[in-house]
Design a protein around this nucleic acid. Sequence first.
DNA 1: GGATAAACGGAACGTTGCTCCGTTTAAATA
DNA 2: TATTTAAACGGAGCAACGTTCCGTTTATCC
Lengths: 199, 199
Amino acid sequence: MKPEDTGEDGGKARVLRADAQRSTDALLQAAKEVFAESGVDAPVREIAKRAGVGIGTVYRNFPKRSDLIAGVFRREVDVFAEAGQALAGSDAPFEALARWSGLYVDFLATKRGLGAALYSGDPAYEALPGYFRARLEPVVRDLLENAAAAGEVRKDVDPYELLRAIGSLSATAETGGAETARRMVGLLLDGLRYGVERG
Amino acid sequence: MKPEDTGEDGGKARVLRADAQRSTDALLQAAKEVFAESGVDAPVREIAKRAGVGIGTVYRNFPKRSDLIAGVFRREVDVFAEAGQALAGSDAPFEALARWSGLYVDFLATKRGLGAALYSGDPAYEALPGYFRARLEPVVRDLLENAAAAGEVRKDVDPYELLRAIGSLSATAETGGAETARRMVGLLLDGLRYGVERG
DNA sequence: GGATAAACGGAACGTTGCTCCGTTTAAATA
DNA sequence: TATTTAAACGGAGCAACGTTCCGTTTATCC
């Protein structure tokens, strides 16, 4: 049971009081449930209520709305990044990339509103893209470089741009079904394969 | 000077009172300006203020927020649809499709928040996708069918899906620059060309 | 068992989309 | 032109939201 604070500074470990730790845990759990049911735009009050905690407590632990969202998805994104690193070792690099992309589409599809929030530019969600980028860009980079080294895709595509593009296309999954998103992402990836020789 | 009501029923032409006509015009003009400055999420009160009109008047003429947005962009979308139809006559069908896509990216890039609002699924913007779809899907269909008939792209892509995909990718233009969006749309279109023979 | 600072909770503020209704006014009628 | 009437007006008001503020409670340390 480490202190485990909310920020990503592993440095000066401020020891949380027991009640604070409880509140943080309850909030993350409640937020996870509420996000799953009502999307990431769910009212903060609802999350506070479900956690059995006052609104003030929410904002002390998660100063911005996006901090709460980031907190909820941090572990899941981490899991995702690991899954990607595993795939990056594949000897069928393009298929690995495609598979990972499919997983990412599904991942965002089950987190209602997350895809839209990620790249909305809304300052309320400021903290989100940073964390996602930090964790997932290296994964995409690896997958992409492997596929490029194998001559399966072109080399002139920026990993972060591709990550954003997949995320954007996944945002349509919420209103149009995940199949559409998957097809469009598939199309995008096929674009990576078009004209490889001169890429 | 026809009655020119707000709805799309060309039928029973309800004659607007002169002041009502003035209000509608002023609102459309004000909304256009405000949207350009602050994006489509700008407060209704601000638009009302600039138009020199009460809030009640806004909601009588445009019951939902999206009706106002649709009203503002209606003409521009129409122009867009015409430009597409012109391109559809080209004898370089894929290039026509690519060119039109580029125009669409730029179009959405200059309308801050429109891309995000279009396919957000937010009920507040309900009326938007319908109008965009009605006007633009036939265009994409033509462009796509022409290119497919020329053997330049595959045949198994749904025009509306493609339209949405381009729109979604354009949404990233607001935070990441239009170049990124254009590159990603280019990638998507290259996907259309990948493996044509078996499409 | 104090002392103290950390954590708490919720009232309150400002902003938003939208409704409601008493007031004004364009325009048809006499 | 005077009267009538329904269309259009404007903005107070409502509910919901994100966020701040601060008096109260409580975990922890000595």
